[in-house]
Design a protein around this nucleic acid. Sequence first.
DNA 1: TTTAGCACTCATTAATCAGGAGTGCTAACA
DNA 2: TGTTAGCACTCCTGATTAATGAGTGCTAAA
Lengths: 341, 341
Amino acid sequence: MLTERQLLILQVIIDDFIRSAQPVGSRALAKKRGINFSPATIRNEMADLEEHGLIEKTHTSSGRVPSEKGYRFYVDHLLSPEKIEQHELNMINELFEESIVELEQVVQNSAKVLSELTEYTAIVLGPTVEDNRLSKFQIIPINDESAVAIIVTNTGHIEHKLFTLPKSIHPSEVEKTVNILNERLRGVPLSELHSKLMGEIILLFKEHVNNYESFFQSLASVLNISSNDKLYYGGKINILKQPEFQDVEKIKDVMKLMEEENNFYHLLRKTPIGIHVKIGTENKVPEMEDLSLISATYNIGEEQVGKIAILGPKRMNYSKAISVLNLLSKNLTFTLSNLYD
Amino acid sequence: MLTERQLLILQVIIDDFIRSAQPVGSRALAKKRGINFSPATIRNEMADLEEHGLIEKTHTSSGRVPSEKGYRFYVDHLLSPEKIEQHELNMINELFEESIVELEQVVQNSAKVLSELTEYTAIVLGPTVEDNRLSKFQIIPINDESAVAIIVTNTGHIEHKLFTLPKSIHPSEVEKTVNILNERLRGVPLSELHSKLMGEIILLFKEHVNNYESFFQSLASVLNISSNDKLYYGGKINILKQPEFQDVEKIKDVMKLMEEENNFYHLLRKTPIGIHVKIGTENKVPEMEDLSLISATYNIGEEQVGKIAILGPKRMNYSKAISVLNLLSKNLTFTLSNLYD
DNA sequence: TTTAGCACTCATTAATCAGGAGTGCTAACA
DNA sequence: TGTTAGCACTCCTGATTAATGAGTGCTAAA
């Protein structure tokens, strides 16, 4: 379909545009090393590439700019992996060197490092708590009328919830309840706790716990875990450094996009396993037509727990971003698996 | 110092500028109702006001704009309280109508409402956990080597911390420890837990708990509560609606300011009790020379727990902002005091 | 097939100009 | 003596024009 020379020219155009953010003309291109033909020849090839819809002009007599289709082709076929510098490697390794206390902390720091390495905005979706399995449940009475429920999961995630504890419940009943729940619910994904409780466990309650009704109500609400996996940003304002965001309206759009957390939450949830690149309108979000989102997944053992992603202009350094994302997601998976699996 | 008429003119200039963001000229001023003298007269008075440093020209033949000193004078002497509309009252009341589960949630929602009511950016400093008093402490073993410590305070704040539990410790020892700590530390501010532990309580440990040393180490780190009171923003991008932020560099500055959470954290911590207005350079932060920050405190009972604030352009509607802030902080104090005190 | 040459297009920038809002000053007025 | 009308002057704003230059497509020659 495309000749070797056309591929070469396309690659150089996109590489150059990614670097300079300026439309690339035939003369400037001819001067690049590796290019041994005249501007006129290049103009002919460019016309062909434009017919294929891979590059565009911004006006009749301007240089060429990659089209969305061009970026897609570039990402799919022309990308050469970028070498990661030693000092960049160090930054990533430092993330995992300190003693790791909380999973969330590591994840949050990853976003920061990711944004610093790429100069784009990093978005990290924290562990999907719903898929975690219950490993320990406990109730701590605080005063006459309230208590805290503690839920510990297999990935070390801890959650606490305040609830009202009916006065009529005797401490021994509470203990019995805790025992029942631990016995029956260990290993159950948090998302299924509520239905399990309403199914088999309510029968046990009827049998063993006096005055169970209002108490059971409270428990039901406590075990109704809503998906509250969090979204962390790193370098939110990095994106403003990009020359394409010198326009006030565009800045407002992208800031608004990030402000409303749901946007990226849903976008990232949908994302498949492994590295995934969505360019411009492929994101199906009007405000993202000038943005690309590259995402990767990280796991704990076999369980897929979260996503890390880079948000940049369509004209982003895909090669660099993918390399860094790939490395970091693998490191995250490795470290977290060792820790919690 | 200033005549009645000059005060009137100053007030009208500032009111008008706050509304329109345009320099106010003598002719436009003369047409306002309540003004019954000619443009020429107004020009004379304006010249006086300018000599006092209360208003400024943007260029030789422009209308007048309030100076920072002018705003200060306006806030101190000319402010008339703004009536709060019924639907605005409703928005505030709705905050407190739903059953309140977590203090943090209320506080966070306050930021949202505050930003919606004012169209500026709201900043809320959550409860200062350090000043809370311990009301309940508990330890829950998770597995052979780790446990969760639960700390509940008098304001209903719950905190959990993972720590390593030496295998050598027998469950009965843990129970004894929990009893000792609850007995000795109840009512102690979180910020003093650590020193109390290292002082009187270590002696009790030596006496009553076997193999206490490494266990005690863990406890010490658990009870070393760092001040992690959080900063919440509402309507971060509201500030971009203001006509003074149509300049890309300014937008970057203010976004960066908000991105680095420490900035406002420290600024708000310093703020005195009650309503407080800092205009432009009074904030002592170079990037805030075009911004004003109005803050208020909210309490639980007698204890001052947090701050709510509004960040807007220097040309903000002080009257409205102060009224809303005043009302909301009082409501917060009232509701939280009833709940937790 | 490649390339030199040329006419043409269009964005960008600087320069010029007209219109208008606003000021300060002076002199007349109540 | 305080107030106001009149006027010359300043400076911002927006529109228009012109020059420059980067780049293209096409044609014809190598």
